[in-house]
Design a protein around this nucleic acid. Sequence first.
DNA 1: TCGAATCTGTTGGATAAGCAACACAGGAGC
DNA 2: GCTCCTGTGTTGCTTATCCAACAGATTCGA
Lengths: 195, 195
Amino acid sequence: MLSAFPEEKLDPRVKRTRSLLEGAFMEVVAQKGFQAVSVQDITEKAGVNRATFYAHFPDKYALLDYTVRQGFRQELEKRMLNVCTFSMDNLRALIIAVCEFISTSSSHCNPPSQQFESVMETQVKIQIQELIEKWIDKLSTDVNPKIAATAASWAIYGLAMQWSRDKNKKRPSAEDFADQVLPLIAGNLRLLETA
Amino acid sequence: MLSAFPEEKLDPRVKRTRSLLEGAFMEVVAQKGFQAVSVQDITEKAGVNRATFYAHFPDKYALLDYTVRQGFRQELEKRMLNVCTFSMDNLRALIIAVCEFISTSSSHCNPPSQQFESVMETQVKIQIQELIEKWIDKLSTDVNPKIAATAASWAIYGLAMQWSRDKNKKRPSAEDFADQVLPLIAGNLRLLETA
DNA sequence: TCGAATCTGTTGGATAAGCAACACAGGAGC
DNA sequence: GCTCCTGTGTTGCTTATCCAACAGATTCGA
């Protein structure tokens, strides 16, 4: 598999350690919430020395960044969105991915702190933007990739956020919601005609 | 917890490595059978360097020893038999433990090789024997601990083996079987009167 | 307000794990 | 016979992790 992310030639020990920290982090955050969690909690649960933690991350905020980033990348990989070109179907799949990632992630942190949501927003938007920018770059269009990708990433995240916060019984499924907003985003990209 | 097995002050790295090897070993053995498995298969699946394997075990047979030993210890710990004294209830629990351990283990190795069963028999009997010897030591009785423990361990293992090979529809549950043979074993220990 | 306790980052030296390379031992096929 | 191939153990050197100890920050209750 030709991944777009070249983080695969790492020392096995490094992979292992980060993965252990990531797993432990998610567990303890689910139990106590992000704020209440200490670095000690994480390393203890992970079976990793505290000094080793600091060799990888400056603090728990950096681990949160890393965890969210990795999580969303996996979400994209799962749907093969990391190895594809632009199409309406893929854009739709991306919107669904964002909706479901936000939904499951935020339900996974009790209580959901401001810190948490802010980091999630930053990291996820960055990756949406990078992906869409790559999509546009591969097309021959006069749209400015950076501009269009920025607009689209903000729009997608905002919409997905609103959807995930919607507690109404009649909230549409992620798929239906994606169908609903798809033309809007596509118009945002000014790509309705080229694809 | 005051465990009878002092393997708890190990460097976290060696615990981790052995546990990874053990897990990978069980997986690949379940897939290909013990004979067909190579050291490479194991280390690859475990994400551990092959040289590291040899730093812990001379070959795959030693890993089999280790895995069986650890597995049975966990079986004992699960039932709290590693931290108790002799009683009929505990003897009964031990018989059940042996039955179920043999049953699940041998169903877990396809094809079940001679090597496999032989190692299992050796390792499990050793541990039954050690446990019973400790039990007897704590009692004030004129029974020779080594002799009695040897006889009991062979008898228990043999009976459990026979039970686990019994493919009859009307095979009793492990509990019923234990009740059935309990007096026999207890007589073997000549402890009917002292407990 | 003052300790006591807990958590945070950081350091130096010890130890385990990783890696690449090697010689060697079967086994398969020609 | 031969070579090719795959797996086995072993080695010297590099790198990551562990550990104990430290000083400073923060929290919390007396």
